[in-house]
Design a protein around this nucleic acid. Structure first.
Lengths: 328, 328
DNA sequence: CTGAAAGCGCTTACAG
DNA sequence: CTGAAAGCGCTTACAG
């Protein structure tokens, strides 16, 4: 039914081997190449990638395993990864783990079954720990969440520095009781918490933070309780844009005006952080770069397998807006 | 190097055929099944999907081709599609076309090379027209953008009704000069425009709309000119959430207060549309449903190929907020 | 530069 | 229920 390489060979009056070579840019005379191309056009032939992969032992496929595509950080990174991949003639298999270690295990298994060429992966803390014991079967670049052991290439933000910058920014603006809300599922949340704690300690101030599940709703309900308690902070640093929207909603529900009753700063320069009055102060991550560089590291690793492990640490950019205006 | 089905067979003391049957739930005695399972565990065997696909002629892969994952509508739909697919034990190949017909053609070719089981596709107008002439090689469900010819199953919003509802909402609130901004790349934009025109005509009012490229920046610059001209509308209906953010920025840049100087309504109930003061009135689309139903239609089609073509039209829900408060 | 032949790792009639 | 054999559609040594 479907036309195969034999049909093309017949139509072109050559052997299947020649068709294969002509299509892959191998050494074929101009004359035969033209015949093959004509036959391909005439028959509407499209190679069967499953067969090609099986025979060539190359899947030409990149695995991309992230927490949740609806997190704008991962949306943007994924777009960059895909662009790089398709530009290099490779396919992308995308998986959302919802920060669930079981799903991560399942998808890693799938990646192995696909015999992927390489993996871009943002693991949970749980899986990250296991990764330092068990090496993955394919070249892997971790994004957003670094391996402490240094077994895998990775591209991460300088989380401690970025969070420290937010904290110092708030201190300069006159805030003293600066609370923190950080995600509990990834090392990123913990690194940002550490940067937060360090910056406050350095200034002789007392940290006051909470951890919560990485969703806007979890942030909102955690903050609802906090905001209505007597130890409500003057300012709040949160570790991602989901928490940021949760914080704004919780503040409004509690009747808190930003920044008068509560200064607010967070991560990820989404369009709406500028549009929400009075503008939210954020650390902008170089999202496109993170995706692109991760792919670059991966391709280099594929070309030169025994390269030393590299950790690429990118800097965030602080975008100051009205939500952290000077305390009055 | 990598362990294959033969290695498992040897370890289990059975034939490769039995291993294959045991793994696929075929008719195998309990005893041998247990032996195979033990051998799989012992060897760490993972099947090679390329080989399985080639032999079984089933890719177990769904193609998902959308305009841009960064559009929250497609982000949400994609998550729903992926969940359905993985739940059914299928893989998803995701492609972003950026509304470029050439990329669409390229990706459709790729889908054919992957011999995908089925396709979920949001085509541009250009490609949609071609689709009515040339039938795709695989079962296809169109989302967001319907085929007029009725050659493909599809899941769409009732665009005319939804836009009409926004227009009537504005008329009721006292607005008369109601402008429109609609995307020019998809039929969705045009359908929404038609609904807009029809609703205004029905009320004896004059339509005043512009079309533009489907990006926030394009919307912003189109509106910048319009807002500073003497024929600036009192209210504006826009056809997606990218345009909504562009409209808010353009309004602020022009010093227009919402809704006093400009009422605003659009599509897609993103978190931030509630957070941006005074709250933006939107049509909420049943995004999860659109993805889920598209997959449901696809699976039914796979089971029963000769089903008549179905068009599923879902209704939006109007979420009224401050941006369309009654005219004073 | 070209072709005949082998084989990638599975699944699936076929026979028992 | 089980195994031996064929074959999915390609690519790639091998020989010329």
């Amino acid at each position: 039914m479907t036309v195969g390489i034999k049909d093309v060979a017949k139509a072109a009056g050559v052997s299947p081997a020649t068709v294969s070579r002509a299509l892959s840019g191998g050494p074929v005379s101009d004359e035969l190449r033209a015949q093959v191309e004509a036959a391909v056009k005439a028959t509407g032939y499209r190679p069967n990638l499953a067969a090609r992969r099986l025979r060539s032992q190359q899947s030409g496929t990149i695995g991309l395993v992230v927490a949740d595509l609806r997190n704008p950080f991962f949306t943007a990174v994924s777009r960059a990864v895909e662009d790089s991949a398709y530009r290099a003639g490779m396919r992308v298999i995308l998986c959302n783990t919802d920060e669930d270690p079981e799903r991560e295990a399942l998808y890693l298994q799938l990646m192995q079954e696909e015999r992927i060429t390489g993996l871009i992966f943002a693991p949970t803390r749980t899986t990250l720990e296991q990764l330092s014991r068990r090496r993955l079967e394919f070249p892997t670049v971790l994004i957003d969440r670094a391996s402490p052991a240094g077994l895998y290439d990775c591209v991460v933000l300088d989380n401690a520095a970025a969070t420290g910058e937010l904290v110092r920014h708030l201190i300069e603006r006159g805030y003293r009781h600066i609370g923190g809300l950080f995600g509990n599922a990834s090392v990123t949340g913990l690194e940002r918490r550490d940067g937060y704690v360090a910056a406050l300690n350095a200034a002789g101030l007392k940290p006051d933070f909470r951890l919560c599940a990485p969703s806007a709703d979890a942030a909102r309900s955690t903050l609802a309780g906090w905001f209505s308690s007597p130890d409500r902070p003057e300012a709040l640093v949160v570790s991602n844009s989901l928490f940021l929207s949760g914080a704004v909603r919780a503040a409004r529900a509690a009747g808190l005006s930003i920044p008068r009753d509560l200064a607010l700063a967070g991560f990820d320069n989404e369009v709406w952080t500028e549009l929400v009055e009075p503008g939210l102060t954020v650390i902008e991550q170089p999202v496109e770069d993170i995706g692109r560089q991760a792919m670059a590291l991966l391709f280099e690793r594929l070309q030169t397998p025994h390269l030393p492990v590299r950790k690429l640490v990118l800097s965030g950019r602080c975008v100051a807006r009205g939500s952290t205006a000077a305390r009055v």
